[in-house]
Design a protein around this nucleic acid. Structure first.
Lengths: 204, 204
DNA sequence: TGTGAAATCAAACGATCGTTTGAGCATACG
DNA sequence: CGTATGCTCAAACGATCGTTTGATTTCACA
């Protein structure tokens, strides 16, 4: 029972990388277990099925992402002088942090794939585990943008979500130049995303 | 040779719908040919392979989409008083038209999937055949936004692309209310997307 | 040290995948 | 009319898929 935790982690990490690279259907359990260095039957033994493995891959990262986002939001939700940029920062910075530490750099790609998939069960799983976070952020956005109707607000949050998911899935990510540190580059990226999203959200 | 054109079209239409619904790997040729009402072997006979079919699905829609976009861009590229909103309109409106007529409503979902896939051969195909369109629009955007550095411009165009692809893939599409016509609703949607994108692009 | 549960392993299961085959059908042309 | 050509069809190909099985190994604990 000691090495089982190790095996499960190895499978989750290999699965995350392969799902990001080849998709949920494109990555086979044989490729996956070979990359993880474990036996083929280990997936079904530890996770029950491939579908369950997919959900566990999401759970591992989303749990900490949600926790960090809500913690960041709590810091500013009470303050009357909080700005739209602050709320966006609470949403964006935890995702960028996740991309650069904890080996979760590939997770945003997996998330982008999940958005592109219109598979109902996966959508429902994401909505169940993720919905309350978006609801809290929506409330804060509504407070910052009182001139927007509810319909307009939903529209723009959806557009922001699309832009950020697209960008953070590593598509157009601009490479860090060798003369800037990793932390600096991350902060520049965050500033870039926030500036764009804030301008789009507060359009007249 | 008469019915072949009919069969090819039936396959392309069924493939577009199934690719949008289940993805390129998730949609099998057996589901696909059954939905099209043709024999299983018809795909390999008419298209050579499944990969070729995928490319043909893109070709059919992207050829007309690019033609319309470039035609719209040509109308304003010479005019000195053209606005950023005009350029965005030339980019967005043809895509919305495609979504609502010609049965291409599902194509934007297919395109969103292609963006999520990091498959190199598919990316190369899209870049080779349709990169020149993005290059022309980028030139116009640069003309409208002279205060942006080249790096910032690329960043923001990428973010706009993500937002529009996400929105037009039918994710958060707000349903048309029964008391507005289809044309009116389309124009409202276009205005919404353009307003958001213009504000994001011209952020300070 | 002996024992039983947990974990790993090679092997095989049936199902489904993309593709190929060769016979049969249709139709246009000499 | 005969024939060549383009097309459709059922059937089968080998490969690979997710999953299951039963034996074997590992290891904490009595």
């Amino acid at each position: 029972m000691n090495s089982s935790a190790n095996t499960k982690e190895r499978i989750l990490t290999a699965a995350e990388a392969l799902f990001a690279q080849r998709g949920f259907e494109g990555a086979s359990l044989r490729q996956l277990t070979a990359a993880a260095g474990v036996n083929l039957a280990a997936v079904n033994y530890h996770f029950g099925s491939k579908d369950n493995l997919v959900e566990e891959v999401f759970k591992r990262r989303l749990d900490q992402l949600n926790a960090r986002r809500l913690a960041a939001l709590r810091l500013i939700s009470g303050q009357p002088d909080a700005t739209l940029e602050d709320v966006l920062g609470a949403f964006i910075r935890p995702a960028l942090d996740l991309s650069h530490d904890g080996g979760g750099g590939l997770f945003m790609r997996v998330l982008a794939r999940a958005f592109a998939e219109h598979d109902d069960s996966l959508r429902k799983f994401l909505s169940d585990n993720y919905g309350h976070v978006m609801r809290q952020f929506t409330t804060e956005f509504a407070r910052m943008l009182p001139h927007l109707s509810k319909e307009e607000l939903y529209w723009r949050i959806d557009l922001v979500t699309g832009a950020l998911t697209h960008a953070m899935s590593g598509f157009g990510i601009i490479q860090r130049k060798s003369d800037v540190s990793e932390v600096t580059h991350r902060e520049q990226t965050a500033a870039h995303l926030i500036r764009f999203a804030a301008a789009g959200l507060s359009a007249p």
